[in-house]
Write a protein that binds this DNA or RNA. Structure first.
Lengths: 223, 223
DNA sequence: CGCGGAATTGATGTGCATCAACTCGGGTGG
DNA sequence: CCACCCGAGTTGATGCACATCAATTCCGCG
């Protein structure tokens, strides 16, 4: 990414390894002062926010290699909570140090801008998924996306463990837990996967992608 | 924001004023190489993206003082299009210059991080609005938000002109144009505003805010 | 082995999309 | 200056995808 080995070493110096966190423990909670960004080294994390009524919205699931906490920069306060879903190893990157370092290393600054922009684009895609796709398409997209991220990390893309409960998947996809359950069994009957509790096996990615294929709906729509 | 007068002058040096753009003209289009960010000086702009099927989603409306184009940083390509809704004055900030300058001026870098983070938080709020609120609440939120942004710029918060067609409001709020129309007339009958075409008058902000008041629904929901 | 939350499965309800018809308004040309 | 025209907006009727409510059943854990 344009960082020299020396740059990497300097970045590495400011990163703190936290001792392993267990299911239910927090990286941070909504409203706490923002001090650091976090990177998942192993395990998985969910982030979520709640509105004035106390309703919870799962905003994302974070796998190894992914960065958490960028939303805290705006107000120096965490805008969401991050809770580990299973025993996880986490690294902490103190934000003050990162700021200093990124001012000194142009390519690190550039990388930070890119990561922030990526988060914006991810959010826009999510918005699109939740507002323009039906339950089957949302669930299929979720599975394909998860599968792809696991593969990138060298893990099996077709057989994996869902560390989050149905309720969280439902919240993330803006569906009811019942609908998620129903669509999973529907996928199973259609031979798209074998699911048993939290275990997914024999995920048929091409078939799932086929579900998302450009509908024959030729919508002409001028901007 | 921590910028010295000298810093401001240096930032000002890199900003280019574009000659006024007219309704329907583009600041940039999806897929074009990313070269600059844009600030609205007067008028209004909409940004939108379209998916593989060609469906259009309005992502935002931009009023004077607001920054456009941050989504282009990730891939050096604009991820959405920006089109002016009425004759508008726009400033262009070449990104390469901004990068150099922000590396040299720590408070500018900090400001950039904040702006990017703000965009992430705005997206998350939007996600929440579109997935957890009904048509009336979405429209009320839209009006309150618009009103507040106009007030900030010294304009009238209760009487204003909607530069975007119903169809765009509908797309932005993930409703059909018919529903937007129906809810507007509903608001009118309820005495929340007078609307005639694109003209909004006598907007009753406290009443609209009342609609959004924490529902008596005491939802206890553990994260 | 038995408890309690998670997950599944079924029955019913509803908010908004969609389809369809009509009206309004403002821009243009005669 | 007015008549026409066409897209934008409104209004009404119908349908449906998913939420919600309500039972079970499953499964992890003490």
């Amino acid at each position: 990414m344009g960082l020299t080995p020396d740059d990497v070493a300097r970045l590495d110096d400011i990163v703190k390894r936290k001792c392993p966190l267990h299911r239910g423990e927090y990286l941070f909670q909504e409203g706490e002062p923002f001090r650091a960004l976090y990177v998942v080294k192993s395990g998985s994390v969910k982030s979520y926010a709640r509105n004035a009524d106390g309703e919870v919205r799962v905003l994302g699931f974070h796998l190894p290699g992914e960065l958490i906490g960028l939303d805290g920069i705006e107000h120096n306060t965490h805008a969401c909570s991050a809770k580990v879903l299973e025993t996880s190893a986490i690294c902490e990157i103190p934000y003050a140090h990162l700021q200093t370092l990124s001012a000194a290393i142009p390519s690190l600054q550039q990388q930070m801008y890119r990561l922030l922009s990526k988060e914006i684009n991810r959010d826009n895609e999510m918005l699109f998924l939740l507002t323009n796709k039906n339950a089957d398409e949302r669930l299929a997209t979720f599975l394909i996306n998860l599968s792809g991220r696991l593969r990138k990390r060298g893990l099996c893309a077709t057989d994996f463990y869902l560390s989050m409960p149905r309720h969280d998947i439902a919240s993330y996809l803006n569906l009811s837990a019942e609908t998620v359950s129903r669509r999973f069994t529907h996928f199973q009957k259609a031979g798209l996967l074998d699911i048993s509790g939290k275990h997914v096996q024999r995920l048929d990615i091409p078939a799932l992608e086929g579900m998302l294929a450009v509908g024959m709906t030729v919508t002409i729509n001028k901007g």
